[in-house]
């Protein structure tokens, strides 16, 4: 190995090592790998919003085009999901890991990819848009109108008005269920749509008018039972735990771990339930709370999910856990 030959061989090895290793790493990642893929691969860095959130945060894809999205978490664990219409949940991606999904969207629209695991005080800002465009159709795709919110606006209801506090009301829901048969319930109260646009307090008034002889506390229990009637499903409880509990607390007491970092103390559902309309809760969830840190979930939850979530909030308010 001595002499010129060995020396020259060593020099070649040296260059191969020092230049070849970095070059092949970068070359593979940024040139060869995309070149080998038969469709577009988009690498998305996922960082807490303070450090840039998703980058890129806007991806355009044509209808029928196959695309692979690779989400790389770099700082803390993020939960990666794509909202209604695509309904993808990649689960949590730990730092240094990459989660990927390949999809071929078949209907145009604006889809939101977002973090669904609390990752920072600005966690809810961690969102990006996947825009599926149909080159043949003209015009921008807008969000479909939301009938419940439209109705609120039409009725000039102030969605962001401060809720009245209902102090000291702790109805006995099981008792309400037992006593349901013994009281006369006005038809409105049995109609979920009516209940959605009325407060339990209004419901109680209606019940009292119909049943003047029944004690108030029994009617209170019955009202509580009616408003929280559907038993929450496991899925909806999970939805709440993942998206709401960090601020509002696991049982909706307004005491989540992030409760201290928000602009206003997060609502404790039991405190405001009595004077709160379900459709206002619905609107708050879908479009966010103006002037508070309540983010909008309209692009993340389906309308049906939001309705079920509102029902679950009543359950939390009236002691279902």
């Amino acid at each position: 190995m001595t002499g010129k030959m060995g020396n020259r061989a060593a020099l070649v090895v040296l260059v191969l090592v020092l230049a070849g290793i970095p070059a092949s790493i970068v070359g593979y990642q940024y040139w060869l790998r995309p070149a080998l893929a038969d469709h577009r691969v988009v690498d998305i860095a996922a960082l807490v919003p303070e450090n840039g959130g998703f980058s890129p945060d806007l991806i355009r894809v044509g209808v029928g085009e196959t695309i692979t999205l690779r989400f790389a978490a770099d700082d803390v664990a993020h939960g990666i999901a794509i909202g209604p219409g695509l309904d993808i949940d990649l689960g949590q991606i730990d730092p240094g890991h990459v989660g990927e999904v390949t999809l071929t969207p078949d209907s145009p629209g604006v889809y939101t990819y977002y973090c669904n695991t609390w990752c920072s005080p600005n966690h809810w800002r961690m969102r990006g848009i996947l825009e599926v465009v149909d080159p043949t159709a003209a015009g921008a795709v807008g969000a479909p109108p939301d009938p419940i919110i439209e109705a609120l606006i039409a009725a000039s209801v102030d969605i962001d008005a401060k809720p009245q506090l209902a102090e000291g009301i702790s109805p006995d829901r099981p008792n309400g269920e037992q006593k349901l048969e013994t009281v006369e319930v006005p038809p409105g109260l049995l109609d979920p749509t009516w209940r959605l646009s009325h407060t339990p307090a209004e419901g109680l008034v209606a019940l009292q008018a119909q049943n003047p002889e029944v004690a108030d506390d029994v009617l209170t229990d019955v009202t509580a039972y009616l408003w929280s009637e559907p038993t929450p499903t496991v899925e909806i409880k999970e939805l709440f735990a993942k998206n709401c509990a960090a601020c509002h607390g696991e049982l909706g007491a307004g005491d989540g771990p992030a409760a201290t970092s928000t602009l206003e103390t997060p609502v404790a559902f039991a405190d405001v339930a009595w004077f709160r309309r379900g459709d206002i809760w619905y609107a708050k969830i879908r479009r966010g709370g103006m002037g508070t840190d309540m983010p909008n979930f309209g692009t993340l939850f389906t309308i049906e999910e939001t309705r079920l979530l509102v029902d679950y909030l009543w359950s939390l308010s009236f002691g279902e856990s």
Partner: peptide
């Protein structure tokens, strides 16, 4: 190379 270009998550 990994230190300069790779993930900032040290454990990976």
């Amino acid at each position: 190379t990994a230190g300069l270009l790779g993930t900032s998550a040290g454990n990976r």
